[in-house]
Design a binder for these strands. Structure first.
Lengths: 190, 190
DNA sequence: AGTGTCATGTAATTTGTTACATGATTGA
DNA sequence: TCAATCATGTAACAAATTACATGACACT
């Protein structure tokens, strides 16, 4: 369900091709939701059939075309309803926590190394989220700028601050996890 | 992959039947990993075929039996290797973050209500994790006690503290999310 | 006799992962 | 002409969700 809404969310900023969306949800850019190419193309066709988005064929050279999808009125309503509804939390499923819960059964040095890797990863995630938050506050990201062209200028600051706040939260959680992991290393050393 | 290791982790504390494991990974108890019954029974058979666990048929009345699974030497090694290896982080996939990222597109009062529900849920999660942490520190949980019977008494305190620390981390993250959501409500009101 | 818990499964579907496959266009 | 990027797909598989299904046993 959520991939659908994540796609609607970015297509509301700007109509995009499947290829654009693949890059957006792949790897580094997709900090909020990740999805491989093999999931995106079929989903776009399903969403078009359901009338949530409309595809527009654009010529890119004599033989190559791309299909640019935009959100329909129906898609817009569907997204608005989903956004305004409180959903049950996703069931917890974090492989790293399964690991941490069993650190007492392996040698302390091994657990230390796994925690080192975890700390490095979380610190990187925090730094990236903070950098993105700052870019959003300065309205420097391409997608936010395009989004703002469709919105009342009086609201631009508020919108940027709300978007930035999401990445602020991601960073805050990552920082807490780093502190937690450091405390875990202290406990392992005992 | 992780369900397998989560199952091995709890079976190392104590041999259990499929039914026991279903209750453990279902709903309230499964704070770390959740899995429905329809996933657990087939997985147990797959793991038995792979030689990671061994099933022992126990009579429970004249016609009813249960199969109690315990971790084999091979399963123990498999778990130890997995625990000692740093794995890539799971791709981010949090439906709530998709929601939060688009709060600027719906009326502020609606977003407020969704955040209210989120705050209530995270506060509950934090309280439960803290309560469980405290029970672990006092060695009051049945599973920890059984686990400790197989371990060196000199290590009991360290093991309890390491397990408790995992739930401490879960609680800390939930508390940060609550603070983040409150700040989000302040931003929405602007 | 009936409710609740113990105990174990299957079937259908959706979602996500990994890998393979093809061709056009752009710019060095 | 070669590499990088643009552009779109398929196939096979693994993981997870929802729903259905059955029967034994314990207690009241």
């Amino acid at each position: 369900m959520s991939l659908q809404h994540a796609l609607l969310g970015v297509l509301e900023a700007r109509p995009m091709s499947g290829y654009d969306l693949v890059r957006f949800f792949d790897g580094s850019t997709g900090w909020i939701w990740a999805a491989p190419q093999s999931q995106i193309y079929p989903m776009l066709r399903r969403m078009e059939q359901a009338g949530l988005i409309a595809g527009d064929e654009e010529a890119r050279g004599p033989r190559l075309t791309r299909t640019v999808y935009s959100v329909t009125e129906k898609g817009h309503r569907e997204l608005a309803v989903w956004l305004g509804t409180a959903h049950d939390a996703a069931p917890p499923r974090d492989p790293f926590m399964v690991q941490a819960l069993n650190f007492d059964t392996i040698p302390a040095e091994e657990a230390m190394k796994v925690l080192d890797a975890f700390i490095a990863e979380q610190e990187k995630a925090a730094a990236e989220a903070e950098a993105h938050r700052d870019r959003l506050l300065r309205k420097e990201t391409a997608l936010l700028r395009e989004r703002l062209t469709r919105r009342d200028p009086a609201e631009h600051d508020r919108i940027a601050r709300l978007k930035a706040h999401v990445f602020d939260g991601i960073a805050a959680v990552a920082r807490v996890r780093v502190e937690w992991a450091r405390e875990g290393q202290r406990l392992l050393g005992e």
